[in-house]
């Protein structure tokens, strides 16, 4: 494979992150739980009700997604927005670098036979 050393290290980093996320699922670490792989935030809410059974939340969200599906759609939207901006950033940087490299090549190596670089 013609992967550079850099690309290999980057791929390896992604693979380790993926493995860290998948292993708990593959090893069935959620087994025996009432709700396997529920959110830690929700568990904290349950712990509060356990510690102080008479506690009543005194404020409710102004807007609540009407269903789990809509909620996950909004979470996906959040991730997509972030990923889009990151991709835009790296795209712009790459374009600038290539533009600068092309300009340097055109200015530096104006060989006699190469007239197009003079335009």
């Amino acid at each position: 494979m013609g992967m550079s050393r850099n690309a290999k290290i980057n791929t390896l980093l992604l693979l380790v992150v993926a493995a860290l996320a998948v292993l708990p699922l593959a090893l069935g670490l959620g087994e025996g739980k009432e709700e396997p792989f529920s959110g830690a935030d929700a568990q904290a809410e349950a712990a509060i009700t356990e510690l102080k059974p008479d506690y009543e939340p005194w404020f409710t969200p102004l807007y609540e997604p009407p269903s789990g599906e809509v909620e996950s759609a909004l979470f996906a939207l959040q991730a997509a927005l972030g990923a889009g901006v990151l991709a835009y950033y790296f795209g712009v940087r790459k374009g600038r670098r290539q533009g600068a490299a092309a300009a340097a090549a055109a200015a530096g190596s104006g060989t006699p036979g190469d007239t197009r670089a003079e335009d």
């Binding site: 860290l20 996320a21 998948v22 292993l23 708990p24 699922l25 670490l29 959620g30 087994e31 025996g32 739980k33 396997p36 792989f37 529920s38 959110g39 830690a40 568990q43 979470f75 996906a76 959040q78 991730a79 927005l81 972030g82 990923a83 889009g84 901006v85 990151l86 950033y89 790296f90």
Partner: peptide, 21 residues
């Protein structure tokens, strides 16, 4: 881009060894 990185990462609920996300 830095703000976007926080946007992406805080939207990802990932399984952990404790059996929760």
């Amino acid at each position: 881009a830095s703000g976007a990185f926080t946007f992406v990462l805080s939207a990802l609920k990932i399984p952990s060894v404790t059996g929760s996300c």
